[in-house]
Nucleic acid binder design. Sequence first.
DNA 1: TCAAACGTTGACAACGTTGTCCCAATAAAT
DNA 2: ATTTATTGGGACAACGTTGTCAACGTTTGA
Lengths: 341, 341
Amino acid sequence: MKTTIKDVAKHAGVSFKTVSRVINKENGVAKDKIEKVEAAIMALNYLPNQNARRLRGKSTNIGFMYDNPNSNYVITMLHGILAKCRERNYELIVHPCQSADKSAYDEIILTVQRSMIAGVILTPPMSEDSVLLEQLDKANIKFVRIISSATPPQDIERTIYVNDRLAAYQITEHLIKMNHKKIAFFNGDIEHKSSVERLKGYQSALQDHGIELNPKWVLEGRYSFESGMARAKDMLAYSEVPTAIFACNDEIAAGALFAARMVGVDVPAQLSIAGFEDSPFSRQTWPSLTTAKQPNDLIAGHAAETLIDMVSSRPADEPIEHDHGYLPEVLVRQSVIELPA
Amino acid sequence: MKTTIKDVAKHAGVSFKTVSRVINKENGVAKDKIEKVEAAIMALNYLPNQNARRLRGKSTNIGFMYDNPNSNYVITMLHGILAKCRERNYELIVHPCQSADKSAYDEIILTVQRSMIAGVILTPPMSEDSVLLEQLDKANIKFVRIISSATPPQDIERTIYVNDRLAAYQITEHLIKMNHKKIAFFNGDIEHKSSVERLKGYQSALQDHGIELNPKWVLEGRYSFESGMARAKDMLAYSEVPTAIFACNDEIAAGALFAARMVGVDVPAQLSIAGFEDSPFSRQTWPSLTTAKQPNDLIAGHAAETLIDMVSSRPADEPIEHDHGYLPEVLVRQSVIELPA
DNA sequence: TCAAACGTTGACAACGTTGTCCCAATAAAT
DNA sequence: ATTTATTGGGACAACGTTGTCAACGTTTGA
């Protein structure tokens, strides 16, 4: 038998409404009663029934929708979001989905409505699909999204952005400073904005350092080990082989590493490889991967905070500045070697 | 303005209770009315308010508590559980925790009570902590746990078990069949029952094949890359070096692989390495790891199903047979080589 | 001294659903 | 024809909370 607000009221010798006031920190309750009520709450180990609360008032659920095969990314985001939810006493509905199947969108919207979710957090690639965003707006569902962008997006109040372009620029620049001039780029899924951004960063770094881009060395592909392996195998059979590969993420880099080993090319002695994302295994390959680390926990926390502020309709404490978005940090490890000048 | 059950009733020309009956598939409603009500539900795009439902009736939340640093494991379990939850119309509260900090237990129990969670799913290592289990029982919280065991546990009705011992036996046997006789064992966290079980499997495989166990080759450690690397570095400096390593999981194996490469030992030519768990990266190391794959999605789904049956207090459809628990499957890849007989 | 104002408190309705009960209409049995 | 089951469906309470409003006692100002 659960203890209810009325049990507390009886125990404290007040009406149950007064107990409600104390719980919700409304003002207009005498101090001695507050103490009595709090004592009663302690004594009875009372916990408000969230369902009743939600029935009467507003929803305190938010959703996390994702369509990303990378476990590590998802878990990091999840933990960042959960931490904020606990802090703010919100509950999280986790909802993995396949955005490939566009009928999934209806299902998402249905889920949101059914679960009385106040708003959702979207991550790439779903966060970049304008069809989905429009549908959400039409269904009047609030959301905060995380995207890849080099400049503040228009809807900055509900968008957290990560400056992949600048980070890719820095990685490329790092390769150039190590005297690499023949630098290949292995792209990820072209539908992901991050891959486009990373390519742009690569391109402008080359340009700024007066290195001509060889289009044969810019390879399309996917964000997968297999893609990296296949592209590297192709490329290593070229008549002119680059001295370095900038892979759009660590999986691709690991695939390239694997292929290099298969055909007997030594990394980094004969070929340098850089990745992106700082996946856990990037530290554990041989050689370990030079890569860029994204502060995903911070990003997720920020997104959750923004969403909760939005749906609890109280003004955000102090709008967090985003002058340049979140900037991944370059991690120098062993897979890139310096060439003689 | 949300549409409620009464709007539907008005639209269908029946009382709202009848609508409730239709929704809950209670019998005692004429067919024509059922059709009318269903049409009205469609027309108004009505969705029952879950909070009101839960307030009146039982909780439809279950919890997933975990304390496992392995993202891939967690995500796989999560998805297995979520799939069942959707099917059965339950909601999942995800709750990562640090079981190291024993005060976390109170917090878990508090969370369960606050969120009106009907029951929780526990994974190793938490699922093996008798203190936690006792506290849950005392707090009258239902749970289903997943553990490592070679025989059916006493509380079989709320325990799903994975036969790590037999799988480890099979991996070891595989090594023996490849003519390895000097086989080292790199253990994981000794507090995890899985590591104890895997060690036992290793031991009895050796015994059954008349190979004497060299205690110097059984090394304590943790379930981590660093542990595998350190142990391998130590071991490769021994006067007598084994021809194969059976690592308690893939991370350890990857660490050993890394160390071998560091000191110039060729894998698999000079040293075979087998892992355990089939982590995604185990396919992507060079050479790819021979390992054992656990059917984690099935296991998680089974756990969720068992728990939901338990808390919805309806007898399980047909109790699923577990004669020997779930058996991981040996995956032969490249990191183990056959020795001349 | 009385009225107005204030701070404090409680009675009651409402949220949207499900469970209980009971009544009406029909079918079956006498 | 009358009674007895059986079925369908409605009225109402209940779940545990918050919002609204009125009433209370006390202080303040005229």
